[in-house]
């Protein structure tokens, strides 16, 4: 056995990894079952910071969303972006998209198409969200934005001057944003935003990042970085919190639209599985059958696949991690067997 392991061709390891990743994807894809997530404090902090953005100023928040990544890291980061946009759109924040990566505009486009256009078609471009696109220059772009944003970003991606975009009114520099939410795949990314925006101008910053970057950014939490999502696990946790939040918020908005009092609404939004029964009670008598059906659908219907991407990927992640642990153990068995025989490691 040990002899066989000693001479193991690495292609077998590759095959094992391929199976550990693809079989769970197939099973999860066909059954739709995902593992439950328990959010860690960092993901909760990320959510809370986005949730309370703008509260201090008593206005609709201006959130600068910087998507600094490319397709190479989209597997880890796009679930974060989708959930971030989902939360901001549901909360009613104004979203200003930018990117410091040349391919970033495609990531922005994808987030807008998958979330805003599909699930929030009422949001108006130029009033609720704007795509300012990419600028070359890495951290120097942040530096200039800190002084005068409009000289760096003169137009949006469609070539419209910022002065003609309603939501750009009053936005002249980074300090006019209530929050910077950044999704980062490397350089330029979260570190640069911490250095040249959060620290220098004391603007709240939350960042989602790749697994490679996450450990390097922990020291910034919680002062310079108010929330941190690390790798696909961070994405899955955040996705889980946002999905719950969006569902609750929608339930409450339907109940409010049908004249149900705030207290009942709040109680029901915390017990979504009880809603179906509640609609048959006297309290729900004022609601029309259509409203009741909509309420039950929103409360108990399936979450759209777009917002389960991170949680789905935790399946292959589990088996691949177990394989990694097994490989390390097997590798060490070989090592100790060789050492006992007096061979070189």
């Amino acid at each position: 056995m040990i002899r066989m392991l000693e001479n193991l061709d690495r292609r077998w390891i590759f095959l094992a990894m391929a199976l550990c990743v693809s079989v769970p994807i197939l099973v999860i894809g066909l059954t739709g079952v995902t593992f439950p997530e328990t959010p860690t404090p960092l993901a909760e902090a990320f959510f809370d910071e986005v949730d309370r953005a703008g509260e201090a100023n008593g206005r609709r928040a201006n959130v600068l969303i910087a998507l600094d990544y490319d397709p190479a890291s989209a597997g880890e980061l796009s679930p974060m972006s989708l959930s971030l946009v989902n939360q901001c759109a549901q909360k009613g924040h104004r979203m200003y998209f930018i990117s410091l990566w040349p391919v970033g505009p495609q990531m922005i486009e994808e987030s807008i198409d998958k979330v805003i256009k599909r699930f929030y078609p009422d949001l108006v471009y130029g009033q609720d969200y704007v795509n300012l696109g990419f600028k070359a220059g890495s951290e120097q772009v942040i530096k200039v934005m800190g002084i005068d944003l409009t000289t760096e970003f003169r137009t949006d991606v469609e070539g419209t001057m910022l002065s003609q975009i309603p939501m750009m009114e009053g936005i002249t520099s980074l300090e006019d944003f209530d929050l910077i939410a950044e999704i980062s795949a490397g350089y330029p990314g979260s570190k640069e935003w911490v250095l040249y925006a959060a620290t220098q101008y004391d603007i709240p910053l939350v960042s989602g990042m790749t697994g490679v970057q996450a450990p390097q950014n922990y020291p910034y939490y919680p002062t310079q970085l108010k929330g941190l999502l690390g790798a696909i696990k961070g994405a899955a946790e955040y996705e889980f919190i946002v999905n719950d939040y969006v569902r609750e918020a929608r339930v409450r908005s339907i109940l409010a639209a049908n004249g149900i009092d705030e207290e009942t609404s709040l109680g029901l939004s915390k017990q979504l599985d009880q809603i179906s029964t509640w609609t048959t009670s006297a309290e729900a008598a004022s609601m029309s059958p259509a409203a009741k059906a909509e309420l039950i659908d929103v409360a108990t219907g399936a979450t759209p696949g777009e917002f389960l991407e991170g949680q789905r990927r935790m399946g292959p992640q589990l088996f691949a991690h177990l394989l990694m642990v097994l490989l390390i153990i097997l590798g060490n068995l070989v090592f100790f067997a060789q050492r006992r025989r007096g061979g070189s490691a």
Binding site: M17, A18, V21, S22, I25, L26, G29, A72, S73, A74, G75, E76, T210, G211, V212, A214, P215, Q216, G230, A231, I232, K233, R312, R313, P316, Q317, A320, H321, M324
Partner: peptide, 23 residues
């Protein structure tokens, strides 16, 4: 810790590609 997180990231990227092929 850095190694653990790096592994995590790489696998997610592979999962995304396999999803592309399957989906």
């Amino acid at each position: 810790a850095a190694f653990g997180f790096t592994v995590m990231g790489r696998i997610a990227l592979l999962a995304a590609r396999v999803e592309f092929l399957f989906d």
